[in-house]
Deep mutational scan, measured.
Amino acid sequence: RKEMTAACTPRRRIINLTSVLSLQEEINEQGHEVLREMLHNHSFVGCVNPQWALAQHQTKLYLLNTTKLSEELFYQILIYDFANFGVLRLSEPAPLFDLAMLALDSPESGWTEEDGPKEGLAEYIVEFLKKKAEMLADYFSLEIDEEGNLIGLPLLIDNYVPPLEGLPIFILRLATEVNWDEEKECFESLSKECAMFYSIRKQYISEESTLSGQQSEVPGSIPNSWKWTVEHIVYKALRSHILPPKHFTEDGNILQLANLPDLYKVFERC
């Protein structure tokens, strides 16, 4: 597991931080080997919608929660590849102030007048994250320049770009939802926020969305749709870069829909 690298990086740093090793061990302890084997050997059937997909393993048909699986995938990559990410360069710098204002204007932020003026909160978020810029760049390849612009994001899987519609809320939550006081809790909560931002979430995906850094293989055609990215990038990574937690067998994120021999018997009677 320590050699797990989802995106190509030129050289690998050895990380011996106790906090990170502890988080890696927790993933191992909570892992479910049968689910790992199923995901490793599954045959992708198709997307139901951005949140759900169908896959077959041996004779069984499964309904998989793409949102939760991708979130767990990105969390584990962030923990196992800690401080070893490439950088996704933004085509132009994104001012943190503008991103924070967009987030505060969104109902998702939960902002009320009692929280104070949005401009003041946005300025605080910019200054707060600028103070964390060195650590964010060093460990997470999340790059913020001296003017308070976001200029780079971590490359977690080759050819995958997170849904940038979720970027404003991500920046807001970096400042408000991460435990910045304790090292282990900081790395864990920061990785979880980043994983949620990178995950496939239906509120940020339309039929026209593209999450891939590449064009489709047909010359002159439109960019790959999110469905292509889910199948050929995300579920491909799920084959080798995730140890599913045991609770996925109990919380409805992986559901067995049918045993195909039983279905064949039904059709034979028709």
Rank of each mutant, 00 (worst) to 15 (best):
I125P: 00
E217H: 09
L90K: 00
K236Y: 14
E92P: 13
D181S: 03
Q58E: 06
R239I: 11
S199F: 01
A94R: 01
H32C: 10
Q24Y: 10
Y160E: 00
L142A: 01
V266E: 15
N259Y: 08
C47R: 01
P245C: 12
V34Q: 07
E114L: 13
R89S: 12
L90I: 04
I242Y: 13
Y80T: 04
Q24P: 15
L172C: 07
F140A: 13
S43W: 14
T67C: 13
E37Y: 14
L90Y: 01
I79Y: 15
E143T: 10
P50Q: 09
I254Y: 09
P107M: 09
E26L: 12
M38L: 07
H241N: 09
C186L: 02
R11H: 12
E134L: 04
N65L: 00
K118G: 15
Y198A: 03
N253D: 05
G148V: 02
D115W: 15
S206R: 06
G110S: 01
A103I: 02
S19N: 06
L172G: 01
A83K: 02
P107F: 14
P107R: 06
A83H: 08
E147H: 06
V161P: 07
H247S: 05
P95A: 10
I222E: 12
L255P: 04
N16S: 04
A55H: 11
L21T: 03
E143N: 07
Q215T: 10
I15P: 05
A122W: 01
K236S: 13
Y235I: 14
E231H: 13
Q215P: 09
H241V: 11
L61F: 02
F128V: 02
S22Y: 13
T59R: 03
T18M: 12
H232F: 08
W111L: 15
D115L: 15
S225N: 05
Q58F: 14
K246P: 14
C186A: 02
F267D: 02
M4Y: 14
R1P: 11
I157P: 00
P50R: 04
E188N: 06
S109C: 14
T229V: 04
Q214S: 05
S22W: 14
L155G: 03
L54H: 03
W226D: 06
S141I: 04
I233L: 09
D251R: 05
P261N: 07
F267H: 05
K131P: 15
T66H: 02
K227D: 09
P163V: 08
Y235A: 10
I27M: 12
E268Y: 14
R13N: 10
Q24G: 11
A53W: 01
N28R: 07
T67V: 11
G152Y: 03
S19L: 15
N84V: 13
I200W: 07
I144H: 01
D145Y: 01
I200K: 02
R239Y: 12
G166A: 08
L102M: 06
G120Q: 03
H241E: 13
H247P: 13
S106C: 05
E72I: 07
C186I: 02
Q256W: 14
V230H: 08
F82M: 01
K236Q: 11
V48F: 11
I222G: 05
G120A: 14
S106V: 03
K118N: 15
V87Q: 09
I144D: 01
G213E: 09
N84Y: 12
R239S: 14
L54K: 02
E113W: 15
P223Q: 06
M4F: 12
R89G: 14
L255T: 03
D145I: 02
E143G: 05
S189K: 04
T176E: 12
T112H: 11
Y62R: 02
H42T: 13
D105H: 05
W228V: 09
L155H: 07
E114G: 03
F82N: 02
E134P: 02
C270E: 14
F140G: 01
C47Q: 10
V45F: 07
E3K: 08
V20P: 14
L129Y: 14
T5M: 13
V178C: 01
Q51M: 09
Y124G: 01
L104R: 00
L121Y: 02
C194H: 07
C47N: 09
D115E: 02
Y204W: 07
I77N: 13
E33D: 09
C194R: 00
N84M: 13
C8D: 09
N253M: 06
L104F: 04
A7H: 11
G86H: 08
K118W: 15
N41I: 14
K132L: 01
S141G: 06
D138V: 06
Y139P: 02
W228S: 05
M196T: 04
L23C: 10
H232D: 13
S221T: 09
H40D: 12
S106D: 11
L129V: 14
I242Q: 15
L260C: 09
M135P: 04
F44T: 08
R89C: 14
F170R: 00
L54W: 05
T67R: 11
R13Q: 12
Y62F: 04
T112E: 14
G152S: 03
T112F: 15
D145A: 02
G116A: 15
S109P: 15
V230G: 02
T66E: 00
E72T: 06
D158H: 09
L150N: 01
P107L: 13
S22I: 13
G46K: 01
A122Y: 01
V218K: 04
P95D: 10
Q256K: 04
L21D: 04
F44G: 02
M196G: 08
L164S: 04
P50K: 09
S199Y: 00
F267C: 06
P168Q: 02
M4P: 10
F44D: 01
L190R: 00
G252W: 01
E108P: 04
F170N: 00
Y62W: 05
P162R: 00
F248D: 12
S19M: 14
K68H: 08
